[in-house]
Design a binder for these strands. Structure first.
Lengths: 80, 80
DNA sequence: TAGAATTATCCCATTTGGGGATAATGTGCT
DNA sequence: AGCACATTATCCCCAAATGGGATAATTCTA
């Protein structure tokens, strides 16, 4: 059962998210709390076990104190 | 069975996507073809019957000849 | 208002999501 | 190294969402 999230694009997305969280010095639990979601949610996102909705992406990035647009920009230029 | 896409945020997202497609004077079929997907895919997205993955969002917006980052920016400022 | 073009909906097998609990891994300390 | 604590990954099970071809419904256009 190969997940549809197991693509280079998704991996890059996830890398950026993890990097963003680490830079913000936040734990998965802290981010999860800010979102009102369980830690396993963040873990699954970062493990590419779960797709990321465009609105969830924005909420997640904001919860880490970063800018969703800027991050998307970076992702897209990395991918092209 | 209330869809999780039936929220004001999602509706605004969809509005922007439809507006973008109309402005580009493209049909759902044309956009679908560019994405290698069936027309029903685009119809479901625009009917908020389906969530939009962050990478799908980018692909979709690009397929309409528009800028994903700019559109996300617009969406987020509309929502705040 | 027929006929074409465009968009919405149906169906249903398959895939994905939720989230608490627990396992695994990482980190720092002495 | 060995231990305690912090952090992250995985399991499980069932509800919910998705994919996409076919068809219906709606909208355009002449």
């Amino acid at each position: 059962m190969t997940k549809s999230t197991h693509t280079p694009e998704y991996h890059r997305l996830v890398e950026l998210l993890v990097e963003t969280r680490r830079t913000a010095e936040l734990t998965q639990q802290q981010v999860a709390d800010r979102l009102g979601k369980p830690q396993s949610y963040v873990a699954k996102v970062e493990g590419a076990e779960r797709r990321i909705d465009v609105l969830e992406f924005a909420a997640l990035v904001k919860a880490m104190g970063s800018n969703p647009t800027a991050l998307l920009d970076r992702l897209l230029s990395d991918l092209e």
